[in-house]
Design a protein around this nucleic acid. Structure first.
Length: 478
RNA sequence: GGUGGGUUGGCCGAGAGGCGAGGCAACGGACUGCAAAUCCGUGUACACGGGUUCAAAUCCCGUACCCACCUCCA
């Protein structure tokens, strides 16, 4: 069975056929590091992390490049407002982003290039475009260089638009443009308003790169003139990706074979956006649920579906995930110690899981396969079918691992402080449970239930199992 | 004006011509001293109006509402 992915350039589902046998190259547009990342930003990271993991699982050698845009108008404006250097703001926000990715178990890409680290590559590409007659230096002496949209007949092919149908941007400054749709490859330094540190030497004078050129230059550098998959958020389709493709192809490159775009997480029906003030920052959300639960929530929806964010839905997802975790814990206790994970070949659930993943990363169906396996495993657990349980347990483990949702993953490990705390609580709760056990043995159920109620009130759930009472922090109360 | 997407049961969320994905919640049953956890069972949902078809949530036409993009937002 081959992987099929939805290619948003052709708007069809296509078999994935890499340019180089056994290899897969991916370029993902990362973020402009101008402020703290919200859950929408992270969704993109998680979605493409799942893609990357699945490709590796299929045996591809994956080269995954995710860039960081660390210079642009907004960064300059915000840094100026905050009275600090733009590079300090970008650096700080890049750090916040990296932390958020780490918390959500988004694997590090092969490389994460910064725009400002690739000025020479961009200048080179711009010169090539000028040579080939697809770009020009503005005649107004601004030092700007523009891409000549009219010189590239295929312009608009990615987003399915025709130049003449496009709404002329009302607020666009025509500056030295030949056509209002021409976009900046290079922006001349505005000495009066912009810091010198945000400018670099070029054949057209000091300046800084336009937004789109960085991706063309960096994708070319790290993945070659042609590569397999280019990804990003839906809003990047136009203009960003359209322009990237126009530039790269006008320069004679093949560029991306497949385009993948993830949909939004919305709040109150609207796109999450910093300017709307409806952003949910990752640390805020993580006060409510654990990182692994947030990742599960994101993976439970298909990457091309809009997700209407709500804490209610998030809590539900977390409850669903706890059921899976609960199974893993109980199964691990029931299985012999000699048992080791990795004997799950032939498991029917894995086949369903794989089929789902191959179908344009249909993670909702993949998650359903996990739930099915958990139900089966719980049954095996109840009936003491240890051998079957071992296979199911390994299968569930495997599926979670592939989705980056393994509770055993170091990214989700609780810190030393948590463990110490948990040890302390265990000692205290253990004494109460002992008293309860004595009361139950003496058939003093009123006293036993009083202890349980007391613990429940403190947010600790009690479960009686054949091997004695167990306690856990009751997440439902959060 | 142009382009694309959406509207599914109490809630979340898949599916894309024919056996009711899955989860959460609820209710009933088993288990339990009672619970919890777990298992079993219970739902006849696809915005609206037409049409095609033996068969439509799925295809076609129309309507309504929502969302996104149209030059620097994942």
């Amino acid at each position: 069975m081959t992987l099929r992915i939805y290619d948003s350039a052709t708007r069809t589902v296509r078999d994935f056929a890499p340019l180089r046998e056994g290899e897969a190259s991916i370029y993902l547009c990362g973020l402009t590091v101008q402020s703290e990342p919200h859950v929408g930003h992270i969704r993109s990271g998680v979605n493409f992390d799942v893609l990357q993991r699945w490709l590796r699982e299929l045996g591809y050698r994956v080269t995954f490049i995710r860039n960081t845009t660390d210079i642009d108008d907004k960064i300059l404006a915000k840094a100026a407002d905050q009275g600090r250097p733009w590079y300090n703001l970008a650096y700080d926000m890049a750090g916040e982003l990296a932390r958020a990715y780490d918390l959500l178990n988004v694997a590090r890409p092969t490389y994460e290039p910064n725009a400002t680290g690739h000025i020479p590559e961009m200048v080179e590409l711009i010169e090539l475009l000028i040579d080939r007659g697809h770009a020009y230096a503005a005649a107004d002496g601004s030092g700007d260089v523009y891409f000549d949209v009219r010189s590239w007949p295929a312009y608009g092919e990615l987003s399915g638009q025709r130049i003449d149908d496009m709404e002329a941007a009302a607020d666009a400054d025509p500056r030295g443009k030949r056509d209002p749709r021409d976009f900046a490859l290079w922006k001349g330094w505005k000495e009066a308003t912009e810091p010198r540190t945000a400018s670099w030497p070029s054949p057209w004078g000091r300046g800084r790169p336009g937004w789109h050129i960085e991706c063309s230059a960096m994708a070319g550098k790290y993945l070659g003139e042609s590569f397999d998959i280019h990804g990003g958020g839906l809003d990047l389709r136009f203009p960003h990706h359209e322009n990237e493709q126009a530039q790269s192809r006008a320069a004679g490159h093949g560029f991306a074979t497949y385009w993948m775009h993830n949909a939004w997480i919305t709040t109150a029906g609207e796109k999450m956006s910093k300017s709307l003030g409806n952003s949910l920052l990752v640390p805020e959300v993580l006060k409510r649920v654990r990182a692994i639960e947030l990742r599960f929530y994101m993976v439970s929806a298909h990457y091309r579906s809009h997700v209407e964010f709500s804490f209610e839905a998030l809590d539900e997802a977390a409850a669903g995930f706890r059921r899976i975790e609960n199974f893993l814990e109980r199964a691990a206790e029931a299985l012999p110690e000699s048992f080791s994970v990795g004997t799950s070949s032939g498991d029917g659930f894995l086949a369903a899981f794989s089929a789902a993943m191959n179908d344009d990363l249909s993670t909702p169906a993949a998650v359903a396969a996990i739930h099915d396996a958990v139900r089966e495993g719980n049954k095996q657990l109840a009936e003491g079918q240890t051998e079957e349980l071992a296979v199911t347990y390994a299968g569930v483990h495997e599926m979670l691992r592939i989705l980056g949702l393994s509770p055993a993953d170091p990214a989700f490990a609780t810190g030393g402080a948590d463990q110490a705390l948990s040890g302390a609580v265990d000692a205290l709760v253990g004494r109460l449970l002992e008293q309860r056990a004595q009361a139950r043995a003496a058939k003093d159920f009123a006293a036993a239930d009083a202890i349980r109620d007391q613990l429940n009130a403190a947010g600790i759930a009690i479960e009686d199992t054949p091997s004695g009472a167990k306690w856990s922090i009751d997440g439902g109360g959060r």
